[in-house]
Computed example of a mutant assay.
Amino acid sequence: MDLAGPGRDDQVGGKSPYPEEFGKDAVALYRAAAGKRTYAAVAADLGITAESLRTWVRKDENQAVSGRRDAGGEVDEPARLRAENARLLKAEKEWRLEREILPRAAAHFAREVK
């Protein structure tokens, strides 16, 4: 399948039209919101699509998780552990929020059923 054929957007599968530094700044801005703003809200402020921002955030997360590699191709253990710790802390935060919200939601629906 030829993705670069007639009628296809030149950006599909190509290099981003934005400088790499802009992408890093966009990711930093999204993370600074600490979950209080959506991809769409941050992206709208920057004049980009939410999907572009989401892609940059995922790429940054994947790079952090994979860790840095030394000259021998081995993963830098402290970098890998820091990334794993960050992932676990984020998951714990989400679980705590769920534990906080779910009982209230259940109570709300229980009242509506009566």
Rank of each mutant, 00 (worst) to 15 (best):
H108Y: 11
L3Q: 09
K93C: 09
V75Q: 05
K93Q: 14
K114A: 11
P78N: 06
A83S: 12
A110P: 01
E21S: 12
L97F: 00
L53I: 02
N85R: 15
A4C: 05
Q11F: 05
Q11R: 12
R87V: 06
N85A: 15
E51L: 06
Q11S: 09
A28Y: 00
V75E: 06
A79N: 02
A71S: 13
Y39L: 04
G5F: 02
L88D: 09
E77L: 15
G5R: 09
R87Y: 05
R96M: 04
K24F: 01
E100W: 03
R82N: 09
M1R: 06
V113H: 08
R111N: 05
A79S: 15
S66W: 08
V57N: 01
V65T: 11
G14E: 05
V113W: 07
E20R: 11
A91Q: 13
V57S: 01
V27N: 01
K24I: 04
L88K: 13
K59R: 15
E77P: 12
L46E: 06
I101V: 11
L97Q: 13
E98Y: 08
R96C: 02
R54K: 09
Q63M: 08
A26I: 01
R54L: 01
I48D: 08
P103D: 02
W95F: 03
E21Y: 03
D25I: 02
E77N: 12
D70P: 06
G67I: 04
D2M: 03
P78M: 07
T55H: 11
G47A: 06
V27E: 01
E84V: 11
R37M: 04
L81I: 10
V65I: 11
A71K: 13
A40R: 15
L97D: 12
Y30P: 00
A33E: 11
F109C: 03
S52T: 06
I101E: 07
